[in-house]
Design a binder for these strands. Structure first.
Length: 266
DNA sequence: AAGCCCCTCAACCGCAAGTAC
DNA sequence: AGTACTTGCGGTTGAGGGGCT
Protein backbone atom coordinates (compact mmCIF):
# COMPACT_ATOMS: atom_id res chain seq x y z
CA UNK A 1 0.00 0.00 0.00
CA UNK A 2 1.15 3.45 -0.81
CA UNK A 3 1.77 5.49 2.28
CA UNK A 4 2.36 9.15 2.35
CA UNK A 5 3.76 11.31 5.02
CA UNK A 6 4.87 14.75 4.11
CA UNK A 7 7.90 15.35 6.23
CA UNK A 8 10.16 14.64 3.27
CA UNK A 9 8.52 17.40 1.31
CA UNK A 10 8.64 19.95 4.08
CA UNK A 11 12.23 20.73 3.42
CA UNK A 12 12.69 21.58 7.07
CA UNK A 13 12.80 18.17 8.63
CA UNK A 14 10.67 19.20 11.57
CA UNK A 15 7.39 20.72 12.56
CA UNK A 16 7.34 24.39 11.77
CA UNK A 17 4.70 27.01 12.33
CA UNK A 18 3.20 28.81 9.39
CA UNK A 19 4.34 32.37 8.94
CA UNK A 20 2.07 35.27 8.10
CA UNK A 21 3.68 35.48 4.66
CA UNK A 22 2.92 31.82 3.98
CA UNK A 23 -0.68 32.33 5.08
CA UNK A 24 -1.05 35.22 2.68
CA UNK A 25 0.40 33.23 -0.21
CA UNK A 26 -1.89 30.29 0.45
CA UNK A 27 -4.95 32.48 0.84
CA UNK A 28 -4.22 34.25 -2.44
CA UNK A 29 -3.81 30.89 -4.11
CA UNK A 30 -7.15 29.58 -2.80
CA UNK A 31 -8.87 32.84 -3.71
CA UNK A 32 -7.58 32.50 -7.24
CA UNK A 33 -7.95 28.78 -7.89
CA UNK A 34 -10.44 27.69 -5.28
CA UNK A 35 -10.27 24.75 -2.88
CA UNK A 36 -9.26 21.32 -4.05
CA UNK A 37 -6.38 20.19 -6.27
CA UNK A 38 -4.19 20.36 -3.20
CA UNK A 39 -1.32 18.69 -5.00
CA UNK A 40 -1.03 21.86 -7.07
CA UNK A 41 -1.38 24.25 -4.16
CA UNK A 42 2.29 24.39 -3.05
CA UNK A 43 3.59 25.23 -6.53
CA UNK A 44 0.71 27.58 -7.30
CA UNK A 45 1.23 29.42 -4.03
CA UNK A 46 4.99 29.28 -4.22
CA UNK A 47 5.21 27.58 -0.87
CA UNK A 48 7.81 25.17 0.43
CA UNK A 49 5.06 23.10 2.02
CA UNK A 50 3.49 19.80 1.10
CA UNK A 51 -0.10 19.65 -0.15
CA UNK A 52 -1.35 18.06 3.06
CA UNK A 53 0.09 20.86 5.08
CA UNK A 54 -1.51 23.43 2.77
CA UNK A 55 -4.89 21.75 3.02
CA UNK A 56 -4.69 21.48 6.79
CA UNK A 57 -3.65 25.08 7.18
CA UNK A 58 -6.57 26.22 5.06
CA UNK A 59 -9.16 23.92 6.63
CA UNK A 60 -8.13 24.54 10.22
CA UNK A 61 -7.05 28.13 10.21
CA UNK A 62 -7.38 30.24 7.08
CA UNK A 63 -10.87 29.36 5.89
CA UNK A 64 -13.00 32.52 6.30
CA UNK A 65 -15.97 30.95 8.07
CA UNK A 66 -13.91 29.45 10.86
CA UNK A 67 -15.04 30.55 14.27
CA UNK A 68 -12.31 31.32 16.79
CA UNK A 69 -12.48 31.72 20.50
CA UNK A 70 -14.10 29.91 23.38
CA UNK A 71 -16.67 27.23 22.81
CA UNK A 72 -20.09 28.29 24.01
CA UNK A 73 -22.10 26.25 26.48
CA UNK A 74 -24.41 25.18 23.67
CA UNK A 75 -21.50 24.03 21.55
CA UNK A 76 -20.04 22.06 24.44
CA UNK A 77 -23.38 20.41 25.14
CA UNK A 78 -23.68 19.52 21.48
CA UNK A 79 -20.18 18.06 21.37
CA UNK A 80 -20.91 15.91 24.40
CA UNK A 81 -24.09 14.57 22.89
CA UNK A 82 -22.63 14.06 19.45
CA UNK A 83 -19.62 12.29 20.88
CA UNK A 84 -21.85 9.98 22.83
CA UNK A 85 -23.63 9.16 19.62
CA UNK A 86 -20.79 9.18 17.10
CA UNK A 87 -17.67 8.41 19.08
CA UNK A 88 -14.41 9.98 17.90
CA UNK A 89 -15.79 10.98 14.52
CA UNK A 90 -14.54 14.51 14.80
CA UNK A 91 -15.27 15.52 11.23
CA UNK A 92 -18.90 14.51 11.58
CA UNK A 93 -19.21 16.23 14.92
CA UNK A 94 -17.59 19.40 13.60
CA UNK A 95 -19.87 19.27 10.59
CA UNK A 96 -22.80 19.91 12.86
CA UNK A 97 -21.18 22.80 14.72
CA UNK A 98 -20.98 25.77 12.36
CA UNK A 99 -17.56 27.39 12.18
CA UNK A 100 -15.73 24.74 14.16
CA UNK A 101 -13.17 22.43 12.62
CA UNK A 102 -12.59 18.77 13.36
CA UNK A 103 -9.21 19.68 14.82
CA UNK A 104 -10.77 22.29 17.09
CA UNK A 105 -13.37 19.85 18.34
CA UNK A 106 -10.83 17.10 18.82
CA UNK A 107 -8.47 19.37 20.73
CA UNK A 108 -11.27 20.72 22.85
CA UNK A 109 -12.43 17.23 23.66
CA UNK A 110 -8.96 16.02 24.55
CA UNK A 111 -8.08 19.03 26.67
CA UNK A 112 -11.40 19.77 28.37
CA UNK A 113 -14.16 17.27 27.94
CA UNK A 114 -12.39 13.94 28.17
CA UNK A 115 -11.28 14.68 31.69
CA UNK A 116 -14.65 16.13 32.53
CA UNK A 117 -16.38 12.96 31.44
CA UNK A 118 -13.80 10.87 33.27
CA UNK A 119 -14.72 12.66 36.47
CA UNK A 120 -18.17 11.10 36.24
CA UNK A 121 -17.42 7.45 35.58
CA UNK A 122 -20.79 6.43 36.97
CA UNK A 123 -22.62 8.29 34.31
CA UNK A 124 -24.86 5.63 32.83
CA UNK A 125 -23.90 6.69 29.35
CA UNK A 126 -20.18 6.24 29.71
CA UNK A 127 -17.86 3.58 30.94
CA UNK A 128 -14.15 3.58 31.58
CA UNK A 129 -12.22 0.79 29.91
CA UNK A 130 -8.43 0.85 29.73
CA UNK A 131 -8.58 4.50 30.73
CA UNK A 132 -10.55 5.38 27.64
CA UNK A 133 -14.02 6.71 27.58
CA UNK A 134 -16.06 4.57 25.26
CA UNK A 135 -19.48 5.54 24.08
CA UNK A 136 -21.94 3.07 25.48
CA UNK A 137 -24.80 4.04 23.24
CA UNK A 138 -25.17 2.71 19.75
CA UNK A 139 -22.89 4.59 17.42
CA UNK A 140 -24.20 5.88 14.14
CA UNK A 141 -21.47 5.18 11.65
CA UNK A 142 -22.48 5.67 8.07
CA UNK A 143 -19.75 4.22 5.92
CA UNK A 144 -18.45 5.89 2.80
CA UNK A 145 -20.13 4.74 -0.34
CA UNK A 146 -20.64 6.22 -3.75
CA UNK A 147 -23.18 6.05 -6.46
CA UNK A 148 -23.17 7.57 -9.89
CA UNK A 149 -25.54 10.29 -10.89
CA UNK A 150 -26.99 10.20 -14.37
CA UNK A 151 -23.87 10.53 -16.51
CA UNK A 152 -23.67 13.60 -18.61
CA UNK A 153 -24.10 12.88 -22.30
CA UNK A 154 -22.65 16.17 -23.38
CA UNK A 155 -19.65 16.65 -21.13
CA UNK A 156 -17.22 13.77 -21.20
CA UNK A 157 -15.11 15.35 -18.50
CA UNK A 158 -17.96 15.64 -16.10
CA UNK A 159 -17.30 12.84 -13.64
CA UNK A 160 -20.64 13.41 -11.97
CA UNK A 161 -19.87 11.28 -9.01
CA UNK A 162 -21.82 11.78 -5.86
CA UNK A 163 -20.52 10.89 -2.47
CA UNK A 164 -22.47 9.42 0.40
CA UNK A 165 -21.88 12.45 2.60
CA UNK A 166 -23.23 14.75 -0.06
CA UNK A 167 -26.39 12.72 -0.27
CA UNK A 168 -26.74 12.96 3.46
CA UNK A 169 -27.71 16.57 3.14
CA UNK A 170 -29.53 16.47 -0.14
CA UNK A 171 -33.19 16.85 -0.76
CA UNK A 172 -33.05 13.30 -1.89
CA UNK A 173 -35.42 11.60 -4.22
CA UNK A 174 -34.41 7.98 -4.50
CA UNK A 175 -35.15 5.66 -7.32
CA UNK A 176 -37.55 2.85 -6.67
CA UNK A 177 -35.99 -0.49 -5.92
CA UNK A 178 -33.10 0.72 -3.79
CA UNK A 179 -32.68 -1.75 -1.02
CA UNK A 180 -33.68 -0.61 2.43
CA UNK A 181 -32.63 -2.02 5.69
CA UNK A 182 -32.42 -1.05 9.27
CA UNK A 183 -29.46 -2.45 11.12
CA UNK A 184 -29.72 -4.20 14.43
CA UNK A 185 -28.97 -0.90 16.08
CA UNK A 186 -31.97 0.62 14.43
CA UNK A 187 -29.77 2.83 12.36
CA UNK A 188 -29.08 3.12 8.70
CA UNK A 189 -27.29 0.14 7.28
CA UNK A 190 -27.03 -0.42 3.56
CA UNK A 191 -28.93 1.48 0.99
CA UNK A 192 -31.38 4.28 1.50
CA UNK A 193 -35.12 4.25 1.46
CA UNK A 194 -36.70 5.27 -1.77
CA UNK A 195 -39.48 7.77 -1.99
CA UNK A 196 -42.29 5.25 -1.86
CA UNK A 197 -40.78 3.33 1.01
CA UNK A 198 -39.90 6.12 3.39
CA UNK A 199 -43.03 5.44 5.38
CA UNK A 200 -42.12 1.76 5.61
CA UNK A 201 -38.57 2.63 6.54
CA UNK A 202 -39.65 4.94 9.32
CA UNK A 203 -42.15 2.36 10.56
CA UNK A 204 -39.33 -0.17 10.74
CA UNK A 205 -37.22 2.35 12.61
CA UNK A 206 -40.00 2.97 15.07
CA UNK A 207 -40.64 -0.74 15.48
CA UNK A 208 -36.96 -1.28 16.16
CA UNK A 209 -36.83 1.58 18.61
CA UNK A 210 -40.16 1.70 20.41
CA UNK A 211 -39.31 5.06 21.96
CA UNK A 212 -39.44 6.64 18.53
CA UNK A 213 -42.51 8.08 16.95
CA UNK A 214 -41.60 10.14 13.97
CA UNK A 215 -43.92 12.92 12.97
CA UNK A 216 -44.32 14.61 10.61
CA UNK A 217 -43.20 12.15 7.99
CA UNK A 218 -40.54 13.62 5.69
CA UNK A 219 -42.78 13.40 2.65
CA UNK A 220 -45.43 15.42 4.46
CA UNK A 221 -43.32 18.53 4.05
CA UNK A 222 -43.46 20.75 0.99
CA UNK A 223 -40.41 22.63 -0.13
CA UNK A 224 -41.43 26.27 0.01
CA UNK A 225 -38.93 27.22 -2.67
CA UNK A 226 -40.18 24.83 -5.31
CA UNK A 227 -43.68 24.15 -3.99
CA UNK A 228 -43.01 20.49 -4.50
CA UNK A 229 -43.26 17.72 -2.00
CA UNK A 230 -39.74 16.67 -1.15
CA UNK A 231 -37.96 14.67 1.48
CA UNK A 232 -37.47 17.55 3.83
CA UNK A 233 -38.47 17.88 7.42
CA UNK A 234 -38.49 20.90 9.65
CA UNK A 235 -36.62 20.96 12.90
CA UNK A 236 -37.58 22.87 16.02
CA UNK A 237 -36.00 26.00 14.62
CA UNK A 238 -37.90 25.93 11.36
CA UNK A 239 -34.87 24.79 9.37
CA UNK A 240 -35.48 22.28 6.67
CA UNK A 241 -33.29 19.22 6.74
CA UNK A 242 -32.98 16.07 4.70
CA UNK A 243 -34.74 13.09 6.16
CA UNK A 244 -31.36 11.53 6.93
CA UNK A 245 -30.44 14.55 8.98
CA UNK A 246 -33.80 14.32 10.60
CA UNK A 247 -33.22 10.72 11.61
CA UNK A 248 -29.90 11.71 13.13
CA UNK A 249 -31.58 14.49 15.04
CA UNK A 250 -34.16 12.08 16.34
CA UNK A 251 -31.34 9.82 17.47
CA UNK A 252 -29.67 12.78 19.11
CA UNK A 253 -32.39 14.87 20.57
CA UNK A 254 -35.47 12.78 20.60
CA UNK A 255 -38.63 13.70 18.83
CA UNK A 256 -39.25 17.19 17.57
CA UNK A 257 -42.85 16.80 18.63
CA UNK A 258 -41.77 16.47 22.26
CA UNK A 259 -39.92 18.87 24.51
CA UNK A 260 -37.19 16.38 25.16
CA UNK A 261 -34.61 17.91 22.87
CA UNK A 262 -35.16 21.45 24.00
CA UNK A 263 -35.32 20.48 27.64
CA UNK A 264 -31.97 18.76 27.42
CA UNK A 265 -30.42 21.68 25.67
CA UNK A 266 -31.22 23.97 28.57
C1' DA B 1 16.02 33.88 37.93
C1' DA B 2 15.93 29.12 36.84
C1' DG B 3 13.97 24.79 36.41
C1' DC B 4 10.17 21.92 36.17
C1' DC B 5 5.57 20.57 35.10
C1' DC B 6 1.29 20.91 32.85
C1' DC B 7 -1.82 22.58 29.36
C1' DT B 8 -3.20 24.08 24.83
C1' DC B 9 -3.45 23.76 20.11
C1' DA B 10 -1.15 23.92 15.58
C1' DA B 11 1.03 20.73 12.90
C1' DC B 12 2.45 16.20 11.45
C1' DC B 13 1.92 11.05 10.63
C1' DG B 14 -0.18 6.94 9.12
C1' DC B 15 -3.95 4.88 7.30
C1' DA B 16 -8.44 3.87 4.81
C1' DA B 17 -11.22 4.85 1.11
C1' DG B 18 -11.95 6.75 -3.28
C1' DT B 19 -10.30 7.78 -7.97
C1' DA B 20 -7.60 7.52 -12.23
C1' DC B 21 -5.41 5.01 -15.49
C1' DA C 1 -8.34 -6.21 -12.24
C1' DG C 2 -4.46 -4.23 -10.48
C1' DT C 3 -1.66 -0.48 -9.22
C1' DA C 4 -0.50 4.19 -8.23
C1' DC C 5 -2.06 8.24 -6.64
C1' DT C 6 -5.14 11.62 -4.02
C1' DT C 7 -8.00 13.01 -0.39
C1' DG C 8 -9.58 13.26 4.12
C1' DC C 9 -9.68 11.57 8.69
C1' DG C 10 -8.25 10.33 13.55
C1' DG C 11 -4.31 9.82 16.50
C1' DT C 12 -0.18 11.76 18.09
C1' DT C 13 3.51 15.02 18.73
C1' DG C 14 5.87 18.98 20.20
C1' DA C 15 6.50 24.16 20.58
C1' DG C 16 5.28 27.67 23.39
C1' DG C 17 3.23 29.76 27.30
C1' DG C 18 1.76 30.01 32.10
C1' DG C 19 1.99 28.65 36.84
C1' DC C 20 4.40 26.88 40.65
C1' DT C 21 8.38 25.96 43.54
Amino acid sequence: MHTEGCSSTYGRGEKSAWTREEDILLKKCIDKYGEGKWQLAPSRAGLNRCRKSCRLRWMNYLKPDIKRGEFTADEVALILRLHKLLGNRWAMIAGRIPGRTANDVKNYWNTHLRKKVALFPHDKNTKNTNNDIIAKSNVFKPRPRTFKKQPSLTNKNNKDTKYWWESLLDDITFDDGVANSVSSTGLLDHGQPNNGNIANFLSELEADQPALSISPRPTDITDSATSTCVNLVEDDYGHQNSWTDFIMDVELWGLPSTDQGNAEMQ
